Simulated assay, not measured.
Amino acid sequence: MTIPPLPELLLEPLVRAALIEDLGPSGDVTTQAVIAPDLSYHARINARDPGVVSGVQLAELAFRLVDPALRVTVLRPDGARVAAGETVMTIDGAAASILSGERVALNFMGRLSGIATLTAAFVAQTKGTKARITCTRKTTPGLRLVEKQAVRHGGGAAHRFGLSDAILIKDNHIAAAGGIAEVLTLARRAASHMRRIEIEVDTLAQLDEVLATGGADVVLLDNMSTEDLRAAVDLVAGRLVTEASGNMRLRRIAEVAATGVDFISVGALTHSAQVLDLGLDF
């Protein structure tokens, strides 16, 4: 499935801030000292490792913000799989401009491609099941929009973007509100017909109470054993959407997906992804 690009209006502040941080008050003093302003070059961004690329849209924007006269050609768009040595993008124009935008472009692409690549590895473990891999709010402050987009480029599903999207009742909410029945009553009273309610449970006994009380649309099965996840899916019997979470390592995903859960949320997609090695070569 093709993932539509994000509105440039939302991306420009992120890229502009990164360029300002890197260029500082004096600009690229090294390039100014040793590169003639009229020197033109053809540059390529190449993948040094195989993976799934993301952040291409931001890299292209970085070069255009540095110098609108640069000619950027995208050969492998966001969401594409690349082999080691494959060219993702070419940039033609002033060498000084290319060098000044290089690091910001590569930082965005490397970070986001790492997320997309790790997500794709998790998604591959769900093959043959209905389970979807999704991320969490464990994102880099200020970069949630593009990190969650990278998860989608890797084949993952969208989760809530932030606290205002949906009602997700965690264990501390339950404790503070006085229990499962109490918190679900309060949540349903406050929710509109357009807003879903998800509640976290740690045990099958808590799940029984959620099912008896009613009011939830989704149940988050947190830190459960594979056996308990399977039992939970049987108890729910399709009445709620099920999401498995907690300690979701890559080696465990296939067996969790086989329990019949609808979603598997993985914080590691955004907080532990290794940067994909990409380089810019003249």
Rank of each mutant, 00 (worst) to 15 (best):
E21Y: 14
A176P: 08
E102R: 07
Q149C: 07
F108N: 10
F122S: 07
V88Y: 02
A175C: 01
M1T: 13
T2L: 14
L58E: 15
S100Q: 01
P68L: 03
L229G: 04
L207A: 07
N223M: 00
I264R: 05
R103N: 08
T136G: 05
R81N: 07
G55S: 10
S265W: 03
P77T: 02
I169M: 13
L106E: 04
A18E: 06
V219S: 08
A121D: 00
A177W: 04
L145E: 12
V218C: 06
Q149R: 15
T242S: 14
P77M: 03
I174C: 08
A69W: 04
V210K: 11
G154C: 14
L118V: 09
A257T: 12
S100A: 06
T117N: 10
V151P: 06
A231V: 04
D222V: 05
G110C: 08
S192M: 11
Q32I: 00
A18T: 07
A191Y: 09
L112Q: 04
H159V: 00
E21K: 15
Q149S: 09
A47L: 01
G246F: 01
V53T: 09
T185M: 00
V218E: 04
G27H: 08
L186H: 02
P77V: 05
R251W: 02
D222P: 04
